[in-house]
Design a protein around this nucleic acid. Structure first.
Ligand SMILES: NC(=O)c1ccc[n+]([C@@H]2O[C@H](COP(=O)([O-])OP(=O)(O)OC[C@H]3O[C@@H](n4cnc5c(N)ncnc54)[C@H](O)[C@@H]3O)[C@@H](O)[C@H]2O)c1
Ligand SMILES: NC(=O)c1ccc[n+]([C@@H]2O[C@H](COP(=O)([O-])OP(=O)(O)OC[C@H]3O[C@@H](n4cnc5c(N)ncnc54)[C@H](O)[C@@H]3O)[C@@H](O)[C@H]2O)c1
Lengths: 216, 216
DNA sequence: GAATATCTGTGAAAGCAATCACAGATAGTT
DNA sequence: AACTATCTGTGATTGCTTTCACAGATATTC
């Protein structure tokens, strides 16, 4: 297909494509069969030029007068983002955050499902939470290999996070979404996203304060 | 102090300063009174030049031969990031995610505390969760005004998020950390951080798949 | 005390990402 | 059918972020 273009798409563009798709899905059927770049831009809080740039990597052609067909656009973005048969994700660490994540993603996105959870707490082993089975850590490699899971969420305490990441990579995982407040080292070729809430909150606090100061 | 430099510091630099500080705090006392830029870079998974650039906005001078004094550096970063008397944050939406956040931040960072929570669910009103009092929505403006809260976390369903943001801004909030999966519109001068987990997870899944494809 | 080694701080260069601005397309209007 | 208005797709440009590379600083060695 359009593999050449995809090879060089930036992370930021993929982020926005994910957002565009959801915004479009929400609107479809509500009298909006078509959408202009400036409308989608308004929804996503970006510029129209940004939207058009991002859409250059999907195999789509907008009409000059009607804009983009919402349905087609969703289909084309899905062709880029989703694995053909859907993608399975693992979760490691079924504590407060892990459970919130399980409940949130349960059945939310068609193309993505958290199908296996792991925790060192023996009382969790064998339990099914929001349709997802919890396994003991000893089964990590076996379950991951057996179910073609290529990506995982890390929600264990900071002290355990690097070790977990190493084991995930060893088991074939090539993408990690890390919520532990510590940067992880992964080999070349493994995609890593560090979502550090302390960082986010301290940054928001800083700019809020600066904004208040500016206003004085 | 060094207010001029701070006026122009980028969000990314503030993010990393927050991270540097935590990494330094973890190390201090464990035989590491001093640290070189390349050591801190290794911990933070960035380049040494990046570390030195970032530190240009704090009032610090590293020694050529010993590097930076860990204690001094933490103090200097704190002078930049933290409000002198500590900063109070509000949380709106005490559901699965909101509760996880409350438990996580409870007593975690000295300079930041979530001191008020709000939820429309009447059964939560008056309860104290992890040391934080839950208020009914009707008290939002009053409580925020009365306690000099300048920043807030939004963890309500997407359908309510924009309305909540408007009310927060009206009550004087100048920084919002948004976990609802919808972009929010805020006036100029209000700092907004959108932490969209669906976006993050779909992006990780995409690059994991691409990485697997590349390897074939 | 000169030579060496290795650091920091930073101007300059390189690399990325967002925006501008316009050619070409398409429909509606007269 | 020519004119107007408004859209998309994209080369060129601008702006931001990171990295390079080196001057100047400081300790150590011989
Ligand atoms: N709760 C939040 O809102 C929040 C916010 C930001 C970051 N985090 C981070 O996310 C991670 C989890 O936070 P939480 O609040 O859910 O903590 P938690 O203590 O509630 O849960 C941690 C879970 O990990 C499991 N665990 C511990 N060590 C393990 C190991 N070696 N292997 C497998 N499982 C292990 C525990 O049994 C527990 O179930 C932490 O790193 C935390 O810093 C949490
Ligand atoms: N749970 C997760 O891990 C997760 C992950 C990503 C994003 N999110 C987002 O975070 C938000 C909260 O998720 P959750 O899982 O905690 O949902 P939840 O349903 O468990 O909690 C939502 C809370 O918001 C309250 N609420 C609803 N409407 C409100 C209103 N108008 N004013 C004030 N409070 C109101 C509810 O009473 C409830 O307590 C959602 O937008 C969700 O999409 C959650």
């Amino acid at each position: 297909m359009n593999g050449d273009k995809l090879r060089s798409v930036s992370e930021k563009t993929i982020n926005r494509l994910s957002l565009y798709r959801r915004l479009l899905e929400n609107r479809f059927g509500k009298g909006h069969e078509h959408v202009f770049s400036h409308e989608l831009a308004e929804l996503a809080c970006v510029t129209p030029a940004q939207v058009r740039r991002d859409l250059m990597c999907v195999d789509n052609s907008g009409s000059t007068s009607r804009g983009y067909s919402v349905q087609e656009l969703v289909r084309e973005i899905t062709a880029v983002l989703d694995a053909p048969g859907g993608q399975r994700i693992a979760l490691v660490g079924v504590g407060n955050l892990g459970r919130a994540i399980l409940s949130y993603f349960s059945g939310r996105r068609p193309g993505i499902a958290i199908t296996a959870a792991f925790d060192s707490d023996p009382s969790l082993a064998g339990r099914v939470i929001n349709g997802c089975r919890c396994h003991p850590m000893s089964e990590l490699s076996e379950v991951l290999r057996g179910s073609e899971i290529g990506a995982a969420i890390v929600a264990v305490p900071a002290s355990a996070a690097q070790d977990i990441a190493d084991r995930l990579v060893a088991a074939g995982v090539r993408g990690i979404l890390n919520f532990a407040p510590v940067p992880l080292k992964v080999p070349e070729g493994v995609f890593l996203e560090h979502r550090d809430m302390t960082m986010s909150l301290e940054t928001v606090a800083f700019f809020a304060r600066r904004s208040l100061g500016d206003a004085e």
